[in-house]
Design a protein around this nucleic acid. Sequence first.
DNA 1: TTGGTAATGAGGCACGTGCCTCAAAACAAG
DNA 2: CTTGTTTTGAGGCACGTGCCTCATTACCAA
Lengths: 349, 349
Amino acid sequence: MNKTMLANSMIRPTTKDLAKAAGVSRATVDRVLNGREGVKKDTVDRVNQAIKELGFERNLQAANLAKSRQYRFIFALPRSGDQFLDQIVQRIAEAQAVFFADHVWCEVQHIDENDPHSISAYLSALSEKDVAGVAIMSPETPQVRDAIRRLQERGVAALPFISNQTMMDADWVGIDNRAAGATAALLMGQCVGGRKGSVMVISESMQSRDSLERRLGFDDEINDSFPHLHALPSLETYGNEDRALSIIAANLKANPDIVGIYVMASEARKPLSILQSLNVPPSIIKIAHERTPFTEQALRDRRLDGVIAQDPGHLVRSAIRRLKGIVDRRQTLGSQENIRIEILLRTNI
Amino acid sequence: MNKTMLANSMIRPTTKDLAKAAGVSRATVDRVLNGREGVKKDTVDRVNQAIKELGFERNLQAANLAKSRQYRFIFALPRSGDQFLDQIVQRIAEAQAVFFADHVWCEVQHIDENDPHSISAYLSALSEKDVAGVAIMSPETPQVRDAIRRLQERGVAALPFISNQTMMDADWVGIDNRAAGATAALLMGQCVGGRKGSVMVISESMQSRDSLERRLGFDDEINDSFPHLHALPSLETYGNEDRALSIIAANLKANPDIVGIYVMASEARKPLSILQSLNVPPSIIKIAHERTPFTEQALRDRRLDGVIAQDPGHLVRSAIRRLKGIVDRRQTLGSQENIRIEILLRTNI
DNA sequence: TTGGTAATGAGGCACGTGCCTCAAAACAAG
DNA sequence: CTTGTTTTGAGGCACGTGCCTCATTACCAA
């Protein structure tokens, strides 16, 4: 009995079954399924009713075959040469091979993160004919936000990637930066042990939403759980090495009680080498973001005590699956694509 | 130019193209692709050559459509009622919905983890006709190991799940338990701070490979990095509450210098409630495994300081993708399906 | 050469859906 | 009623592969 039941439940209804159940022809079912005009409201309802009753779900493989559909996706990423981005690009190339069997093609398009106008222009030029979806990593500006909206209206799947845009709280791929900051704080508190003192916070710029959120989460957790620690105001390097050196040195001198340093930017290399050149002792706890060859090595060498990371491979594959899900109008399981905040220590690299 | 290039590279060669390129008929191509007999070695080579040259990869959607293929997978899991397993079962149900569009059906089959004979008998009864693949969570025994091998020989994809079998170092789904143990140790060391003392280690049984590996990793890291800590011999509860209470109490009394407790088993509930009933102070660091409603709450209440976890949803989906990959003879990206060792603290639950 | 077998080709149907055409039916307005 | 429009049906081809059958060719040995 069990077997028969299973066998039955494993036969998926087809459009033919639908037609029979709704008492219409396959042509009409087709019109309803693909939203074509010229069907009476009443008939549409009958078909939809049948869909529900039979639990019909269109056979995507067959549909894609019929349409010889291809999924062309574009990753619009900042130019920059930091190691985290390099990783992302590399993972995209790897993902290509994995998703080849699903008829997915990915391309990387470099955009100028500091020129919202050019980004918007680029996005506006994309047509649904050429591109099925775009994953966009860009700081939030009204122009970019609008360009994304227009893309979606034109039928192109658009997904904020790693950097979030306020508009879409659910529909984006990346970690919860506030929680990431809080995690950094907790790790900091625990590594510092009972010691009392200040914590230096280094960022590239506090303009971006990501940095702001990390900072908020960091402060919340420090205040909540480690009142004996004092988080200093953020130092902004603006990606300038000389500036970074001078402000970090000054900050160190001004706060001799520093027990920890939190490097908030995604590129930890420069701040850390500056710290090293300034002979900051290992007893001062150092926590950074993102797994890169550099941070991995630093963890091993104990130049870093902890790293808060998001897996680049997972980010990329998640973005692809999400884009594909949008294009296919598939139900996606929210929890499936939650990007985890990883804590890297020496042992779990 | 860019566009044309892309358009060309985006047309996948078909068996027809293959036939033309190899100078044979589609029938012969078919014989080669599907390993049928009666083709001259020479011809086979020519076809394979063409496959390489064209970069041919069979269109899985079309093939599955033609065969009206369904993927029926079975998760063979221990009966038990622990929360971690409950989560797994729940995730399987969720995954069903997500993978429905891929024609994947999953079933949970409860097995008796303590009866290798019955497990082996169950696996032996599975035929390639009914089942495309099985994910097996079972402690390692020669009988189970052999049954898995025979399954594979019969053409059923078989994948050790969460509990590893020595035989397959690469082909299984779960975390690296040795690294997990080491991570627990490192977390322990950091939370304990500079304090000196002993660490209690509680397990259900040291018979299983998983426990052994965790213990090895734990000891390695403690010895390496925290010489001021002393890891006590493992306490084995054998799942018996009375026994657990008495040995834990005795262990606490015998070692007044205990500064940390490592609960190695996947079910932390009972050991922890025993510890609570024994009034173990919060200053003693407690680390356990697996994210469950219980451990989440315990982290929030600060009854637990850290949890080493593997994401059940990811485990399940990874197993399904792996099984499907095996059945489809697809290339799988190793790194894609690496299960991460997650560190859960209060902030990143 | 002949007979026999092994190797190959030609062709067709099926899978489930998308998309098209043309005809038939239902309906509304005059 | 007729005329015109809207709605529906019938049917067929295409997508790329698997799996048949039957015919044809190549090759080997007697």
